[in-house]
Design a protein around this nucleic acid. Structure first.
Lengths: 115, 115
DNA sequence: ACTTTTGTTGCCAAAATTTGCAACTTTTCC
DNA sequence: GGAAAAGTTGCAAATTTTGGCAACAAAAGT
């Protein structure tokens, strides 16, 4: 494979990898409301402060969020809110196709298997 | 955290996890052109047939692709092409913000650091 | 200065992911 | 029936990711 293409795929993969954890998505979701500091986010999603800090640094590393220091606390904010909207849209689309496929497989079942 | 919300975040994370590998993205990119069989995809991206098969099964598990058997070969096809468009759009947006942030940090540098 | 609060980092063990090889299944062709 | 082609699966090793705890750094309050 072309090395330039490979590099681009790796870049994309890094962004997706940053999104590939429930807690990171939960924190991003929280950040849609407003900027939050680390200990607030940690409390909101129910994890250790140090773990939250590490997750946030991963999100920052790929540019999904940014931070701003105010005294002793660090406020994180969403850089590109529309990214999450796009993610939701993609997810809805996938789930829609999934459901459609199940309906094709079990056309007459009122309750299709909860996939 | 609400258990229903957690479940939704986990679902989203699974989809992103499926996207979080350069080879899987490469194969999805190939699949935008047309359906391909496993050995074609493996050759295109330069990996073992068995590894390609496993990557493809991950993509299928979350509903990004689907397969159809024709004789001895299995054709995989993209389920929701627009998902990849959305992903590209999200990536472009993030990179745009990243560049803007770098410009703010180094306003007068003709060549901002290659991030 | 000392203490408190807030975050980050280092280290380590546990868990998950990835890869390559070999074995196996299924379908086609002779 | 037997061989060949295309995929899948199982297993073990290597790599990566994650989580928790303790140590550390920075800023603010007393």
């Amino acid at each position: 494979m072309d090395s330039g293409k490979l590099r681009r795929y790796e870049l994309k993969a890094e962004i997706f990898k940053a999104l590939a954890h429930p807690m990171r998505i939960a924190m991003l979701d929280k950040l849609r409301e407003r900027p939050w500091c680390v200990c607030e986010l940690a409390a909101e999603v129910g994890i250790e402060k140090s773990v939250a800090s590490k997750h946030l640094s991963q999100l920052k590393a790929v540019g999904l969020i940014d931070d701003e220091k105010h005294g002793t606390l660090v406020e994180y904010r969403l850089v590109a809110p529309c990214v999450l909207e796009l993610a939701s849209c993609a997810e809805t689309t996938i789930l829609g196709y999934r459901r459609k496929r199940l309906d094709l497989a079990y056309p007459n079942s009122a309750a299709s298997p909860s996939c």
